[in-house]
C-alpha cells in the first residue's frame, strides 16, 4: 500500500508526516516530533543525524553539518569529516 509522506525540511528543525486513513500524522522519533536538521559523522565514522548529531556540534564542528538548507541549490561543497 502506497503512503503519502510529507517532509518539512527546515533550516533548524525538520519533521515528517504521513497520511493515515485520510488524516495527516506527524511521525515522532524518541518522543520528539521535531528533529534538528543536523547530520554528522561519529568518531568511528558512522553517520548520525538529528539530536545525536547536534550533541557533538560543540566538540566536533568539523564532523557536523547544520543549516544545510541555506546552502541547497548553491555550488558550495560541504565537508563532513574527510567526506564532501
Amino acid at each position: 500500500m502506497n503512503k503519502t509522506v510529507g517532509i518539512d525540511l527546515g533550516t533548524t528543525n525538520s519533521l515528517v508526516a504521513i497520511v493515515e486513513q485520510g488524516r495527516p500524522r506527524v511521525l515522532s522519533r524518541r518522543d520528539e516530533r521535531l528533529v534538528p536538521s543536523v547530520v554528522g559523522l561519529s568518531e568511528d565514522g558512522r553517520i548520525i543525524v538529528g539530536q545525536t548529531a547536534l550533541n557533538q556540534f560543540v566538540l566536533a564542528p568539523e564532523r557536523t553539518v547544520r543549516s544545510i538548507k541555506r546552502k541547497m541549490g548553491t555550488e558550495e561543497t560541504v565537508a563532513l569529516g574527510d567526506r564532501t
Binding site: 561519529s42 568518531e43 545525536t52 550533541n55 557533538q56 560543540v58 566538540l59
Partner: peptide
C-alpha cells in the same frame, strides 16, 4: 568517553593529561 547518544557537549577544555573526548 563522550557519547553523543547520551551526552551533549556544551564546552571543551584542553587537557594534555587526558585522552581527547
Amino acid at each position: 568517553p563522550f557519547d553523543p547518544a547520551f551526552h551533549r557537549a556544551v564546552s571543551t577544555e584542553p587537557r594534555r593529561d587526558l585522552v581527547a573526548g
